[in-house]
Design a protein around this nucleic acid. Structure first.
Length: 737
DNA sequence: GCGGAGTGAGTA
DNA sequence: ACTCACTCCGCA
């Protein structure tokens, strides 16, 4: 009998139900039930009608067919935005691997393990005398819980249900029985909290000609995906706001994705001033409940615009018409957890399902997006002028080898020092950016070469001026000693340049200058980040020293000098994107200078002044950089020309990890088709949190072939019932391993 | 033996 | 999450 079955995830929030149940698809529904359908099924002993999501359809029964129940019907009442989100989850699973449950959890995020957002309040609905009589009767019948509960109700009138359940230790049955008897009344209160509030002085955006042309072009276009390449300070936000305004006026809704770090009060206020309460935000600091509230408000149509990081992409709007991804090149758009999806590609898929447009914006677009734009897959728009008439800064490159030859042993070039002095005298501000992605001071013995390493991770410990050595991967801390623990020599010293050392040097060179430092250490507490930025914006300091976190999209009108120390460090990362990252960081950092009326200057200090990512960032010539970079990617078969994936195998035992990696490699190698396989090799960071890490690389022109390899891998893992190791698949990784 | 309270397993 | 089945308890 050719019956078809649907794998269904029951819409109930509990980990025990985090798996599929198979149901028979009745004949009359064979044509209509699809992956992503929301259906009603009988569930549990009482065959209680329950909502479920169809996540797969097969011919193979996986359960005793005689005990398999049938789907009752398709939920027509369920809004189709949910169906589309589940379809999106199927796409994520298909493309990025992982289980369907994991994909669903990221698409319908707050449905899991959340404290009820609606609080139930219990209230006595009979008179006190009647209640007292009931207590008497209950006590006589030894119904202790019931008596205890009623007494409490007489005492405080109203009690939240969760307190009754947890604190008074009274069962659900007891409560429900009393409700049934008409003794107790249930009052359901659902509260939506609004995470954004504050002054809203309305203002209208006035676009310049260039901005208006881009807005019109996108608005009129039939095409779905647009890339706006706008130089730093060209006013991309105004373009977004105008586009959103047009969409809203036609009854549509919009999602704005921005990197978490750029989600500042100022950014949100720009949107609020235009759209007022139609805007809401999502960020990682919101509790699950608050996040859920925002999604509910979006569903109800109370909110039309959601601003947030990656996860905002899954806002359940009913009439989504526009998705904006600001700073599109940012790595944070790639999820770090399984499924390791990229928000840009998922956004494009969602837009396709909803019939919406996607607008990507950046001053330094990712090589991938620009490639697609040039290839005609995306539509390219250029904003080449700074919006308020400000001009691009003058950028100069200083070769630090020459400085050393001329006897300057400081970490600042003479040019940078004289400019800093000049700015201090003019009361203008300076930003010093230390490009040290993955690098900082470490402690090493000059006599035997010993380096302090983390006992849990295969990385050098970073030195902090409080005398502690800290692992930036797992947080392990230890103290430094005055003598080398290996050979006993006293020649143990710190190497490298950290933000703390730079600040120390500046304080020595310019004792009157006020400095602020922004890095890993100074932004650990909630709100630290904002505090430092607003202090600097208010002119409370002359010089701001920081790592990559200071270069992202902040607008300080009084900054006229940006110094970049060790510009080339990010070039040494073991990652095919090293040049892209460097160009991006330098261009963005340089873009911080001269955003007000005064012209800015930028000094880039490097030991590798001829590298194309450095020379071209001086010219702020993105196109020239792109041409160089794409040639390199083509030569070495890297994305976007080729697609690649990494399989990461981790585990506590070195041999077990490597042997399994070898087995997996051989297994895949026999089934690879046209794909290329490399490995297994140890990761750059061989050990992390006591786990060994081994890699297999896959390359193929066609993404689908890579997804197929992952399918093969997942089936293999399932068959072998592999223990003690963890396997992760990462399609088109954004960072090195 | 009964009503009621508390616990645990299973949901296809 | 919810429900059913089971056990335990105090009283008759």
């Amino acid at each position: 009998m050719d019956r078809r079955f649907a794998d269904i995830i029951i819409d109930i929030t509990h980990e025990k139900l985090d798996r599929t149940f198979q149901y028979i698809i009745p004949d009359e529904l064979l044509d209509t039930v699809k992956i992503g359908s929301v259906v009603s099924v009988p569930f549990g002993r009482g065959n209680k009608e329950t909502k479920g999501y169809v996540i797969n359809i097969t011919d193979k029964p996986e359960f005793d067919v005689n005990k398999t129940k049938s789907i009752l019907r398709i939920d027509v009442g369920s809004d189709n935005s949910q169906t589309k989100l589940i379809e999106l989850a199927a796409f994520i699973k298909q493309t990025y691997g992982g289980t369907m449950s994991q994909a669903l959890r990221c698409v319908l995020p707050v449905k899991t393990k959340t404290k009820p957002i609606e609080s139930i309040i219990l209230k006595l609905s009979i008179s006190e005398e009647d209640a007292k009589a009931l207590i008497f009767e209950s006590e006589r019948k030894n119904a202790k819980a019931r008596a205890r509960f009623l007494r409490e109700l007489i005492d405080v009138k109203e009690i939240p249900q969760n307190i009754v359940l947890q604190k008074l230790n009274i069962g659900r049955q007891t409560i429900n029985k009393l409700v049934e008897m008409g003794v107790v009344e249930k009052i359901v209160i659902s509260s939506y909290r609004n995470p954004v509030s504050g002054d809203v002085s309305k203002y209208d955006v006035v676009l310049n000609d260039e901005q208006r042309q881009v807005v019109d072009a996108i608005d009129k276009s039939e095409r779905k995906v647009h890339l706006v390449h706008g130089v730093t300070g060209s006013g991309k936000t105004e373009v977004y706001i105008e586009l959103i305004d047009r969409v809203i006026k036609e009854g549509g809704e919009a999602i704005v994705l921005i990197p978490e770090i750029a989600l500042t009060y100022q950014t949100v206020m720009r949107f609020r001033r235009k759209f007022n309460d139609l805007v809401s935000i999502i960020n990682s600091k919101l509790s699950q409940g608050e996040k859920y509230d925002q999604f509910e408000r979006a569903k109800n149509g109370e909110v039309k615009i959601i601003i947030g990081p990656r996860s905002a992409l899954f806002t359940p709007f009913k009439n989504l018409k526009l998705i904006i991804i600001d700073e599109e090149h940012e790595r944070t758009y790639k999820s770090e957890q399984v499924p390791k999806y990229h928000a840009r590609d998922v956004a494009i898929k969602r837009a396709e399902l909803e019939g919406a447009k996607v607008v990507l914006g950046s001053a330094t677009p990712s090589i991938e997006s620009y490639y697609h734009a040039l290839g005609g897959e995306f539509v390219l728009h250029e904003l080449s002028n700074r919006a308020n008439g400000a001009t691009l800064s003058d950028v100069s490159i200083v070769d630090m080898r020459d400085e050393l030859k001329s006897g300057n042993k400081l970490m600042f070039s003479r040019k940078l020092l004289s400019l800093m002095e000049d700015r201090l005298s003019k009361k203008e501000q300076t930003m010093i950016f230390i490009n040290r992605r993955g690098y900082a001071s470490f402690v090493s013995c000059r006599s035997c070469g010993f380096v302090y390493k983390c006992p849990h991770c295969d990385v050098a410990l970073k030195y902090h001026t409080n005398g502690k050595l800290i692992c930036h991967y797992c947080g392990y801390e230890t103290a430094t000693s005055k003598i080398c623990p290996e050979c006993g020599s006293k020649y143990i010293k710190t190497f490298g340049t950290g933000t703390q050392r730079v600040e120390g040097e500046i304080n020595k060179l310019f004792p009157n200058a006020k400095t602020l430092r922004m890095d890993f250490d100074t932004t650990r507490k909630k709100g630290d980040y904002e505090k430092i930025l607003s202090a600097f914006a208010n002119g409370e300091a002359d010089i701001l020293i920081g790592t990559q976190m200071i270069v992202k999209g902040h607008d300080f009108a009084n900054v006229t000098l940006v110094g970049i120390i060790a510009a080339d460090l990010s070039l040494y990362a073991q990652d095919f994107r090293a040049s892209e990252t460097t160009f991006e960081l330098l261009t963005q950092a340089a873009g911080r200078a001269g955003r007000g009326s005064k012209k800015g200057e930028v000094v880039i200090q490097t030991y590798d002044p001829d590298n194309y990512s450095i020379t071209l960032s001086k010219k702020q010539d993105y196109k020239a950089f792109y041409n160089q970079e794409i040639a390199y990617r083509k030569l070495l078969k890297y994305p976007p020309i080729y697609n690649m994936a990494v399989i990461l195998i981790t585990g506590e035992d070195e041999d077990v990890v490597f042997n399994n990696a070898k087995l997996i490699f051989d297994y895949l190698d026999g089934r690879k088709g046209d794909s290329e396989l490399f490995g297994p090799t140890w990761a750059n960071i061989k050990m992390l949190n006591d786990n060994y890490r081994c890699l297999i690389y896959l390359k193929d022109e066609n993404v689908d072939n890579l997804s197929e390899m992952n399918d093969i891998l997942e089936r293999y893992v399932e068959d072998k019932d592999i223990k003690n190791i963890n396997i992760q698949y990462d399609l088109i990784p954004m960072s090195g391993y």
